[in-house]
Amino acid sequence: MNLTLKIWRQKNADAKGGIEAYDAPDISPDMSFLEMLDVVNERLIDKGQEPVAFDHDCREGICGMCSLVINGIPHGKEKGTTTCQLHMRKFKDGETVTIEPYRAGAFPIVRDLVTDRGAYDRIIAAGGFISVATGGAQDANALPIPKVDAELAMDAAACIGCGACAAACKNASAMLFVAAKVSQLAHLPQGQPERKRRVLNMVAQMDKEGFGSCTNQYECEAVCPKEISVRVIAEMNRDYLCATLVGAE
């Protein structure tokens, strides 16, 4: 198949960027989207042009490194799918495909389609953990956890931290990401001692990073490659309200 690509090119964080058009002929429908970009890049190198920079690593939908806004949608239109798992057979011959980086103030552009998502790490560092040092843990079965709680925690824990939720949100809100971690730990007995402190600290860091607020549009849920439910946002709001009323302790 033959495609036209419109790709955001930007030399570095300070440079002015712009959309450039590239022809992408002879694309196999069996290629993944990133393999298509590999082929385009190899052809650019052969022509003496610098390849398009994009983030990617595991290419099996779990590391959360790939991003891209494809035809206006983070990770493309295929539901529950990361960019690396999107295949070219989902596109039509002759189609024009627009590829942009995530756009959110808290995710500054590094180069071309690569953004800096360090803000997510800093939110985890502010409270997305259980304070337990190595050694001294009790026997794992000494603390029974009902299956339903473990499953609810796992539903939230499936988050890969890719940033699509914030990129899709018109407010650039990181609520789905933050709430997924809050919900995971709130459903587990181990998470109880720091439950209030955690939600207060993580939300404070989220605000500090410049992410917007949630206005219940659910675009985050629609683009989440792991299909994390906005239920977690409701749970976080409840915990946040409680913690604000009674304090961290």
């Binding site: 259980i130 337990v132 190595t134 843990a137 794992a140 299956k147 473990a150 925690a153 796992m154």
Partner: peptide
Amino acid sequence: ANIIDQCVAAGVPFAREYGGQL
């Protein structure tokens, strides 16, 4: 064996049986 204990304490949501055991 210590690894499993450590991971559970850190909040890793391992699969459980209905009785709450791993």
